[in-house]
């Protein structure tokens, strides 16, 4: 199955998929994020290069801001 979970929701996985690709596909434009891939924190500087393995669990925690 070429699927990953992003905040618990399934998303189709593609070879070479990066963290940035996930953010684009999910339209996650908010700048204050804490991202983990299989529980490993991904630094903001690596969003364009960090690869997502098939079957990964990706968590994109949005801090609150606003409000």
């Amino acid at each position: 199955m070429n699927t990953i979970l992003v905040n618990g929701d399934p998303l189709e996985w593609k070879d070479g998929m990066t963290v940035r690709d996930v953010l684009t596909l999910k339209r996650f434009t908010f700048p204050m994020l804490v991202i983990t891939v299989n529980d490993n924190i991904i630094d903001r500087k690596r969003y364009d290069t960090a690869l997502i393995p098939n079957d990964a669990s990706v968590k994109v925690v949005h801090l609150m801001s606003g409000g």
Binding site: F30, V60, H62, M64
Partner: peptide, 16 residues
């Protein structure tokens, strides 16, 4: 008023 609890991201987006 949103100044008590602004939880939309935690709840709806992060699913925390």
């Amino acid at each position: 008023q949103h100044d008590e609890a602004w939880l939309i991201f935690m709840d709806m987006v992060n699913k925390q």
